[in-house]
Amino acid sequence: MDKILEIKNLKASVTETEEKILNGLNLSIGKGETHAIMGPNGGGKSTLVNVIAGKDSYSVDSGEIEFFSEDLIEMEVDERAKKGIFMAFQYPSEIPGVRPWQFIKASVDSKRKFLGEKELSVREFSKIYDENIKIVGMNQDLMKRSLNEGFSGGEKKRNEVFQMLMLEPQLALLDETDSGLDVDALKSVGDVVNRMRNNERSFLIVTHYQRLLDHIKPDFVHVLIKGKIVESGGYELVKKIEENGYESFV
């Protein structure tokens, strides 16, 4: 099977403090696969997804990260995004004075331009925009405000999922998108992921809870503790974690 993401023996630290977070992590994601990462707080899950997205407050000390066989480590954040990596943030930023429409239009335009696709007309864009708002169940009135300003935690998460739908990534990284969501919102996030799954697109879903995974039924589940993947398996691993906690893996 074709690989989308290949991480080999990755060691990464916090740039400012040099604190080591990822200690030789291996992960391989094939086209069309959905992977889940579970693990205790502070284990390095957010660090991992941010290193893949390219956040420069983390440094890669050694190891490899390849995206479609291309080295990612030196690549700018926006270039990674234009090549198909998307990250749904655990804590999305608020952007005063920038409207959601303006923001996502700029994102989509930028990506299409990079890929040599023609720019969508305002009409074409609006049509997709409105459809996706309905699919995610975003409140229309919220979308008239500044991006994420005055959004509740759950609304911010829905907005992340909406942006994922708009940007149609090759690899979507979801960092605790299910935290702080009520049952309905959780179901709608699960539905969007399921509807977006296809042979070409892969997901890496970071979560604490079985709830979302019951809905999505990932192909692979990994346990990340102290900067390493200590166990990998299929969906059945979720049950094991739910019953025994993480202690059994240490």
Partner: peptide, 15 residues
């Protein structure tokens, strides 16, 4: 704000 810039760049918008 650097973290806001990062957020925007993860959507494919250059710095």
């Amino acid at each position: 704000d650097e973290s806001t810039l990062y957020y925007m760049m993860t959507r494919g918008i250059d710095k």
